[in-house]
């Protein structure tokens, strides 16, 4: 087979054009374009959790599981409530059985404490308790989400109104986002086999409804609002009260603000 330089170049050009035709069917989108496509820029969803109002009934967890079709008996959950019991000898006991789906029905702490060296703690004597409280947790919809940063295919993304969503049709299920989240809010959905997490009930809030957990909370411990609106009660709370966030040392800038957060909360 002989091939002159001219034919080789000619064929190369032809081949390159033919090969690039199917590629032209794809469009390259910048992340900014994508961001603008979803969500309202005038809104930044934020959350306030008043831990002093939470009684650990677990209605929020139950409501969330039902609303978002998270398998009811699977141990994973989009939101959960933690119970903390600090004893007079300054030991911290914490638990969240089934994410507190059924509330805290027993005074017995489900988990072992680190100090007990692996032995189950018995029911703590009420006289021994210095303080005890509940802390509801959910996705922090971080301003700088570590999960979005590490997704190799861009299946998880942040909308213009600040909520981090997951594209179930595009997630490859590598679990890198699960590893990257410092708050442990992500898991694999048993049915769809992709990453899943709380999205502030995006299907509800974008229609003007409250999230399922906010709706279900009988004590108003959970509130959702628009942080770009200075008159929103949630914005008012964040501006006027002393609020804190979870694990700010990771630089993720969480947008779930807590009232009455104790230093012992993990």
């Amino acid at each position: 087979m002989s091939c002159s330089r001219r034919t080789l170049l000619k064929n190369t050009v032809k081949g390159a054009i033919v090969a690039s035709l199917p590629i032209s069917a794809f469009r390259l989108l910048s992340p900014a374009e994508l961001k603008a496509a979803i969500g309202d820029e005038k809104v930044r969803w934020g959350f306030v959790v008043d831990t002093t109002k939470c009684v650990g009934c677990g209605f929020c967890v139950k409501a969330c599981k039902k609303e978002n079709e998270i398998p009811y008996d699977a141990p994973i959950t989009r939101t959960w409530v933690e119970r903390y019991v600090v004893t007079r000898d300054e030991k911290v006991h914490a638990d969240s059985p089934m994410g507190a789906r059924d509330g805290f029905t027993s005074a017995r702490i489900d988990e072992e404490t680190m100090e007990s060296g692996g032995e189950h703690t018995a029911e703590i004597e009420p006289a021994e308790i210095a303080k005890a409280f509940f802390v509801p947790k959910l996705c922090n919809q971080c301003e700088k989400p570590a999960c979005v940063q590490v997704c190799p295919v861009g299946a998880t993304y942040q909308t213009a109104d600040g909520v981090v969503l997951i594209d179930r049709t595009w997630c490859i299920g590598c679990g890198y986002c699960v590893m990257a989240c410092p708050y442990g809010v992500r898991f694999f959905h048993p049915k769809y086999k992709v990453a899943d997490k709380c999205n502030f009930c995006y299907h509800r809030i974008s229609k003007g409804l409250k999230t399922a957990c906010v709706q279900a909370c009988p004590f108003g411990a959970r509130q959702i609002g628009n942080l770009r609106d200075p008159d929103d009660p949630v914005t008012q709370t964040i501006m006027n009260e002393r609020v804190s966030v979870l694990k700010d040392e990771y630089g993720t800038k969480p947008q779930v603000f807590y009232l009455g957060l104790d230093y012992t909360v993990k």
């Binding site: 398998p71 008996d73 699977a74 141990p75 994973i76 959950t77 959960w80 006991h93 914490a94 638990d95 969240s96 089934m98 994410g99 988990e111 072992e112 404490t113 680190m114 692996g118 947790k137 679990g175 699960v178 590893m179 708050y183 442990g184 809010v185 992500r186 898991f187 694999f188 048993p190 049915k191 086999k193 993990k266």
Partner: peptide, 28 residues
């Protein structure tokens, strides 16, 4: 067992102490 009740990772993870509900050994 209903496969929907099994969370990925739950089959080979044994927790003790206080561990968040969604935490499992996802990378085995």
């Amino acid at each position: 067992v209903d496969p929907l009740t099994i969370a990925h990772g739950a089959e080979w993870t044994v927790k003790h102490g206080f561990v968040y509900p969604n935490e499992f050994i996802y990378w085995g």
